[in-house]
């Protein structure tokens, strides 16, 4: 489903070049629930943005559903993001001027779904993430948990193959964070592939597989057992 080989990303801002990703190779299968862990600055977000086709790699290959996508043009990438991928960000990234409902309808707008159907599917997606009301409210009138539900509804509404979530609970309290993770678990049970970036072991334990990053490299790739859910310090100590 997802296969990357020797994926590199160098940021060159001005004179200094930062090698954020130093060659990552891995494979993910359909229906997997993968957590990406690692200390701050280890390249998790960079990796996630490349997988999400939001950013272009400096070098390396990326196959999404058997298709090499690192050389596609912007329009092809846009339509792939629209059809195959759903995003959930730490900062929600909802459009502040639009209501919850309109925000959820957006991906379908660009998919060419008819207004009537758009509305139906948006309502369904919102119900699924547990937001049955306040649909005509704008993001600044909703709580963090509610906003993240809207964002998840938006991510799933086009029925994507993969959902990419970058620290989706980072801006939420523990209890709300757990509620959000329940939604991801449910989506996983339904067969959606999920890639989740987090540095919190409690969040990562919801996943079935953990990728550990450090200094732009994938240093560990393991199945989740109770033993492997350890803190960053313990992992670092171990190495």
């Amino acid at each position: 489903m997802i296969k990357v080989s020797n994926l590199r990303k160098v940021y060159s801002t001005g004179s200094v070049a930062v090698e954020a990703l130093k060659g990552v190779t891995l494979t993910m299968h359909k229906g997997e629930f993968v957590a990406v862990m690692g200390p701050s600055g280890s390249g998790k977000s960079t990796f996630m943005n490349l997988l999400g086709l939001l950013d272009t790699p400096t070098s390396g290959n990326y196959w999404l559903e058997e298709r090499e996508v690192s050389s596609l043009n912007k329009n092809e990438l846009a339509s792939l993001r629209n059809q195959k991928l759903g995003f959930v960000f730490q900062a929600f990234n909802l459009i502040p001027a639009l209501t919850a409902l309109k925000n959820v309808e957006l991906p379908m707008l660009y998919a060419g779904v008819k207004p009537q159907e758009r509305r139906q599917r948006a309502l369904l997606a919102l119900e699924k993430v547990g937001l049955g009301e306040r649909l005509q409210h704008r993001p600044n009138e909703l709580s963090g948990g509610q906003n993240q539900r809207v964002a998840i509804a938006r991510a799933i509404v086009n029925r994507p193959s993969v959902i990419m979530a970058d620290e989706p609970t980072g801006a939420l309290d523990t209890k709300t964070g757990e509620e959000i993770m329940e939604i991801f678990e449910e989506l996983h049970r339904e067969g959606t592939t999920i890639v989740l970036v987090t540095h919190e072991p409690d969040i990562a334990k919801h996943a079935k597989r953990i990728l550990r990053f450090k200094d732009g490299l994938l240093i560990r790739d393991e199945e989740v057992t109770n033993r492997t859910i350890s803190s960053e310090e313990e992992v670092n100590h171990e190495l």
Partner: peptide, 17 residues
């Protein structure tokens, strides 16, 4: 700035140029 973020969001969700 505000609009650039909005454009970023729209493009992430599949809007073409």
């Amino acid at each position: 700035t505000e609009r650039t973020r909005e454009i970023g969001i729209r493009m992430a969700l599949g809007a073409q140029r």
